[in-house]
Structures are given as structure tokens and as C-alpha cells.
Design a protein around this nucleic acid. Sequence first.
DNA 1: CGCGTTTGACCTGCGC
DNA 2: GCGCAGGTCAAACGCG
Length: 313
Amino acid sequence: MSNEHRDFYYHTPFQEDHLDVKPPSILGSSTYNRSPGQGVDPSSYMSFTECLHGSVDYNSLAKAFGLSPSSSEVFSSIEESSRPVEARDLDGGNSTDQVPATPNSSVSFSSSEAGGDEDSGKTKKETQPEKPEDGGENSDKKDKAKKKAEKRQKEPRFAFMTKSEVDHLEDGYRWRKYGQKAVKNSPYPRSYYRCTTQKCTVKKRVERSFQDPSTVITTYEGQHNHPIPTTLRGSASAMFSHSMLAPAPMAASGPGFPHHQGYNFVQIPAAMNSQNMGAYPQGVNQHVHQQYQVPDYGLLQDIVPSIFLRQEP
DNA sequence: CGCGTTTGACCTGCGC
DNA sequence: GCGCAGGTCAAACGCG
């Protein structure tokens, strides 16, 4: 429960089925839902990196995406509660004015640096069984709690929505599913994935919006401390590098996502994942890429290939 | 055999 | 304190 919890959703602006790709500027007509009083300063404008560091606002993100506050598809609000961003998104997202009414025209993403909720369970599991002794159990638990809290605040969380038939969107990294839970008020379960790379603690949750089954909500947590697995460079990575979507740059400096390859998870829309790639000809992806015009994001240029950072007309 | 998924159990946090 | 929901573990299982 951190008051630093901020959420940004990136809703891939195209329909997987028809690949009805549209530039953010012409995307849905959803209204910008956030009011300044809610912690958003429309005048502020910072890099995505800053966003992930907890100093960003939705307007900034919207801008980063080339979206204007008035027509932003960024509809999420700062998450103040411990509730997973997805939950809020599922509720408010589709039922209110902020949710992109048009499935193929909504763009939303979420980031939260306060994540780490899931660490609690693991920490507990890892520690308790190992500490059968009662001696310093209390102090030990306290220490763990502290560490847990610290860790919780350190790990950025970033969620985005994607129109996709597949739940698990390929982002270039290798993930191992370690759990699945039914989500309250949703017929669709939530899957938990962990990066299989050693020493990489990045996790992600994937769930499908019950209000919009075609929408997959992916929440990343943590930062990759390694490049994209070589084994995937010939597939996902390569594809990303060649068909990265415009919105990507804003997340390029995100919480440790595939930025090493000049892209990050955010820009990975349904059509970008391997499954979809298999379903759609490469030309389609190129088409998608061409559909976007990316504004200059400054810092992001260090990470995102210039080809993806074109000035928006 | 290695790797990934499935799934029931367990733990924790939170609201009442 | 209790119940609920979320998150994680880990054994079992499947697959290439």
C-alpha cells in the first residue's frame, strides 16, 4: 500500500483480429478522466523514465504517447490502494467515461513503482520454512518485513492493456508461469509469470478483462537485469526491432523491459507477440509500425532507435 | 532429461 | 478475530 502507487495503462490501439491500427492521435474518443486534484498536473511533462521513478503523471504519459489530455486514452488513475491496478482498471476502465469505448482505439498503460505485493508471499514462503527456530524469529520476521517493504517500493510496476486473443504476450523474454488464480468479479483467471533468467526477479501478471474479453491486462513488475535471451533474438526480439510500435518509446526507459533491444514491453501489442506474429504475416507488423508516428521523447532516444522516435506531425 | 505448466495448499494483508 | 482475496510455492504432470 503505497501512496506512490501510480498506474498507467497502455491499451494497444488496434484490434488483433483485423489489425485495425490507428495512430494514437486518432484513437478513441475516450475522455481524459483525471482531474488535477487527483494528483495530476496537466502542465507537467516528463520522460517515461521519470514516470517510472514515481514523478510522472498521466498527462505526461499521455503526452509521451502523443496523446493530448483531452483525448487521451490513458484513463487510469493513480493507484492509492493496495488493489492491483488491473482490478481498478477492470472496474473503472470499461464502465466509465475513461475507458476507451472503442476496443480498437483505446490506448492505456499503467505503471506503478509501488508494486511488490507479490513479494510478500514469496518472502514469507522462503523465510518461514527456513526458520524453524523460535529464537530470533520475531526479529527475523521484522527484518524480512522491512526488506519486503523496501523491496516493494523499489520495484516499479507497469501495466498495460492489449487487445489480444492470447493471454500471454511475448515480449522477448522468457517467462515461467508460477501460478494462476481466479480473480474476483472476473470469469478469467490471472496468471503469474516470472522471468526465467537467473537473478532476474521480474514478474508479470496477465489477466483478461472480464468486461472486455478481448483485452488482456499485463502487469510487469521489477526490472530485467539482463538482455533479452539470445534464443529469442531470432524471433521476438528481431520482430520487435523491426516492427516496434510507436507508443513503445514512452516505455522504453521503463522498469527494465526489453529496452535493451530498443523496445520495451509497452509497445508490444497483440500483433507483436510471437503467437500473433505467427498468426499474422510479417508485413502486417510492418504495416502496424508504419501506422505510428512517434514524438521525440528525449531520453528515450537513448534507448529507442531513432526510427521509432520520429516527430509526430 | 530439462523446462514449462497446472493446480491445490499455504500465507499474508486488508476490511469488517 | 474472522473471512476473503490476492499472491506464491511446490509437487505432479506434460511436452519436446
